[in-house]
Design a protein around this nucleic acid. Structure first.
Lengths: 205, 205, 205, 205
DNA sequence: AGTTAACCGAGACGGTACGTCAAGTCTTAAA
DNA sequence: TTTAAGACTTGACGTACCGTCTCGGTTAACT
């Protein structure tokens, strides 16, 4: 008696309908009003089918977001580190806005109560993007845009932290100008010294 | 005909019992398992009394945390900015740890779905502390520890952001050493240039 | 410390307002939706004032109905017993119709659960009217319209019973013709024998 | 999309437990103290299950009484009409006594406020018994015990009315002797005239 | 190709908590 | 001292979802 169902017999149509319904209903009514019952009804699927394959509402949404987000929010590489970061961060901000109907924000909220979901969220959604960020930063270091001896371990926190600080305390997502300022200041921790005050300004070209 | 009850007639003993029960039960079972019913039972109070004075579970906990947190997590002033920040941030980290039983984390999670609660959380809990942080930073600026022309508007995001980035993605709160590194890097954006690697040490004067 | 309030200090204006509000609200929304709170609000009186003077909602309504009904539904005396009974019964039917907004029907329903109210209802409202009925019947006996040896003890049950049978089982109150038939048949038990089949018909004059 | 649940899937064990608990609790504490919560708890069933199948407490009790009463209070046929009626009415009286714990009395009280319940009560409980009574009366008519031209339409009101008159006004149910008198007088409306005082005795044939 | 075990939809079920309502008690301030 | 106002405890209301379960039916893997 297998405790986990046989994935070979899984109905792909049901799976897709469930993930689609989850995202759609989340966008329509907000993550807070999203329920397993509504997902089942919206997908034309029985609750049992959802519980067979996912342990919780959060896990469903995580799968749905994972599908969705695998291509968005990649790190571009134009050579201008600050600009590239701003581009990528703008995509992240789009995923978090508006908070009330953002599936990602819903996942974040639920993960704060649910360690298992939090771990999944970190490993499946966040970790790959942190790795990508780090690769981009090391590339910039090799390019000479960052100090050769910069401690990049804290970079991700300094660069992305402000977004989540503002998110959790309803301080408003930064607009383009504020984003510019934030990135500039964050990168200042890693640029070669001595430097002038405008080292991270966008190229004037 | 006032839609809000007359605060003059409010029973202070009930109010205190409710707030105490909310914090106690949150610490015992976690914010996620906290219910209005349990608070009422734990406080020896009727549900009606809770609903009369607060619109939601989050509002109760916000009041409770507000009472509690009004004295903790003040900004010390020893003259060593980085050390003072680390001290204060350690207090903040204590309020957020462990996440599963932290009332503040619970509020943060709920505020992500509930804009009204989020606004209250910001105005009542966070704004005063941001102001205190800013006062401390401007003091440091006047003390010559920060660049005279530093743009301190982004400072709070750079300093505290990493904490919330780590919180929401289950990356673990920084230990003492990591906190040291984080603060040092964050402040680097505001210190006078050029600088050496120990720019954040307390003034030797 | 008197357990009963001093009736001398009773506020007559409040008493009237309460009884009037009770009847008005009962007529408007039905006895089932009548509440002490609504009566208090409708009378501009505090709940405490109601509870001070009456033990229950039913007692309030009983007082109100008692005031109201003391003059209606008297027994006329035209000499035609059957006609007189029909006249009086039509007044009773008016008090019971429509059942959903009739204060008397509400009292009857509540008295079925509440023995104290039931006893009050019987003694204050019903008993005097039974006595009046019996006086009317004995008068008819003296007038020679009923058998001299008729057992009038069961008369009230036979005459009025059909009304309450129909009331409690939603069989519809009798219309004028049905009322005629009912009274005629009921009185047949008390008329002198031998008799013909139309002895109780109304006088043809 | 049916608004009523599919009766085929109904759990018969739950249904029985609910009806049994309703009758038991009504007998123990009285209809007035009977609650849906208590029925659910007493039946080991969730409230939702009750609300799924019945619209109100009264509907539950009506079902329970319907089950119970389908065999009691049938009309016997010994040939002696008055005796048969007394037998059957004694069974009815037993169902109504004591009023405070009688499910039927509770239903009657509730039906006075609730037209839908009242209609159900009439159609499901009362109408079949009225029909049975009428059949018995017509049989007696064919047997020559009632006048061939008697208007039996009012018979049920005359015979049973006294019971409900006495019930609603707390006048006490008739004892055996009073019942004898009541039935005798009621039937006098339908016997052939002239008659003697023992007209309701069984035929001597 | 037929058997059979699993998935599937549907949705009833026992629960827990919700937010509301009214009952009846108690406190305060004004008259 | 009574009253209006209204806060309070209590307890039931009817609803919403939860996560589990059983029911036929279909489907897909293995005889």
């Amino acid at each position: 008696m297998p405790t986990t169902p046989n994935p070979l017999r899984r109905n792909e149509a049901s799976r897709r309908a469930i993930l689609d319904a989850a995202l759609r209903l989340c966008a329509e009514n907000g993550y807070g009003r999203l329920t397993i019952e509504a997902i089942a009804a919206g997908a034309g699927v029985s609750k049992k089918t959802i519980y067979r394959w996912w342990p919780s509402k959060g896990a469903v949404v995580l799968d749905a977001v994972d599908d969705l987000a695998s291509t968005v929010a990649d790190h571009p590489y134009t050579g201008d580190l600050a600009a590239d970061l701003r581009t990528q961060m703008a995509a992240v901000i789009a995923l978090l806005t508006p908070a009330s109907t953002s599936a990602v924000v819903g996942l974040i909220a639920e993960a704060l109560h649910d360690d298992a979901l939090g771990d999944d969220l970190r490993e499946r959604l966040v970790r790959p993007r942190i790795d990508a960020f780090n690769r981009r930063m090391h590339q910039a270091q090799r390019d000479g845009q960052l100090a050769a001896d910069a401690d990049l371990d804290v970079a991700v926190d300094l660069v992305y932290g402000p977004l989540y600080h503002r998110l959790v305390f309803h301080l408003g997502m930064p607009n383009a100008e504020q984003l510019h300022t934030l990135v500039a200041h964050a990168l200042r921790a890693f640029v070669p010294a001595p430097q002038d005050n405008d080292a991270n300004a966008p190229p004037t070209s």
